[in-house]
């Protein structure tokens, strides 16, 4: 029988297809993230008294807080699936580059987060009568989510190997992800309040810089996080 070690791209895609197939069968993770997001939004509604005036200015903040919380839920779940039945060892045993594991998991995590965001945006628009269907806003959300999952995937790989596991991920992730969340809030808020493009440019640049730096660093250090 013929075998040949798959390329980085093929191995990455194999992991993504496996994750998506499992999730789109059970919808366990995505439905949990969705319900959780809706609850967060409802709580914010009463906590912040989201009347028409305040809505305009806090929408971006509420959205990103929701995404960040739901994101950690997904990141934790996605990694414990690998850890619980030793599947992480199964991945490490395959003759593929370790970065394929990182990119595979990161792309799956990003997909789950984007699916949740794609459902939350119209729901939020409906509930609060704000128009969130804007291509520029989608771009900002994409950039923010990429940065968040890039760091989140690396850190969830680490936290899954500790004694405290699920509790540890948000504590590790939030302080390091503050730049991406703040820049995303600033950029989305600017778009929603109709600010000049020059005002949005700086947070947008920071988002791009953060994404590039942290994808590169995670790619470089991932080996250290999975080896023994």
């Amino acid at each position: 029988m013929k075998t040949s070690s798959p390329s980085l791209l093929k191995a990455t895609l194999a992991i993504v297809r496996k994750d998506l197939a499992a999730e789109f069968r059970s919808f366990e993770m995505i439905s949990a993230m969705l319900v959780f997001s809706l609850l967060v939004i409802i709580i914010f509604n009463f906590a912040l008294e989201l009347d028409i005036k305040t809505r305009q200015s806090v929408t971006a903040g509420v959205l990103w807080t929701t995404f960040a919380f739901a994101g950690t839920l997904g990141l934790n779940r996605s990694m414990s699936v690998e850890k619980d039945r030793g599947c992480m060892d199964g991945l490490l045993l395959a003759p593929v580059d370790r970065s394929a594991i990182y990119f595979g998991k990161a792309i799956s995590n990003l997909t789950f987060m984007l699916v949740v965001e794609a459902i939350i945006l119209p729901v939020y628009s409906m509930l609060y009568n704000v128009n969130l269907f804007r291509i520029d806003l989608v771009g900002v959300i994409l950039l923010g989510s990429i940065g968040y999952t890039a760091v989140g995937t690396l850190l969830s790989t680490m936290s899954a190997q500790t004694r405290t596991r699920e509790i540890l991920l948000p504590i590790l992730l939030f302080p390091v992800a503050i730049p991406v969340l703040l820049a995303a809030v600033k950029a989305s808020g600017g778009l929603l309040t109709g600010a000049e493009f020059s005002e949005i440019l700086t947070p947008l640049n920071i988002l791009i810089v953060y994404d590039v730096i942290f994808i590169a660093v995670a790619f470089m250090v991932f080996d250290f996080v999975v080896e023994e």
Binding site: M1, K2, T3, S5, P6, A94, P95
Partner: peptide, 15 residues
């Protein structure tokens, strides 16, 4: 089947 398919892909199994 899907489990074997996934691991087969990770090892680059043909046929």
């Amino acid at each position: 089947e899907e489990n074997l398919l996934f691991y087969g892909r990770m090892y680059g199994v043909e046929n």
